[in-house]
Amino acid sequence: MRLKILDSGHGFGTKALFALIRTVSRQPVLDVVKLVQYRADFYGKPMGAITQDAMRGPSAWSVGDRELMAAYVAKTNECEFCIKAHTAVAQAAYRRDGKTVPDLSSNLDTAPVDEPLRSTLVMLGKLTREHVVDAEDMRAVLAAGASRQQIVDALAICFSFNVIGRLADAFGFSVPGPKAFDAGAKYLLSRGYR
């Protein structure tokens, strides 16, 4: 973490919470948790309300699909922390639903993803990479079978993870081993983002 305040500038109560997390999970506290707990009224709480709604609020997209979108936005931004974190949650969510998470490590054109998820991911990738999309991009997603509301829901996810990924990279989140991400995924599936 490039700012010491984000690593160790928290109040006594928050530090006690971190100690509890370390004890229960037997893993280090993820840097994203340290970020959202630092001066939480400035960023963590108002951002958490958005992310919770986008990722766990009512939607035609499954939780697994939404976590996959988060991972794909992270992949487009080349944010290693977020790719690993949300691939782990997507895997756990799909597993819970008796499905296998699509492998997006290669080209999206050849990845085993059904419509309208595939076209939605293509649009989110363009928006993340180029910062703009146009009506033709949206018509392609609608033609693939997505409803307007599904697109609205996907854009909320895209917003959240274009904020979080930028902060992860700018603040220099450390990238722990897979056990830490698995512990984080378990928490995010059961408790959400608040």
Binding site: L127, V132, V133, A135, D137, M138, V152
Partner: peptide, 11 residues
């Protein structure tokens, strides 16, 4: 990004 996308969706 979000506002660009929403304008495109509305269009």
């Amino acid at each position: 990004q979000y506002e660009s996308a929403f304008a495109a969706l509305d269009a």
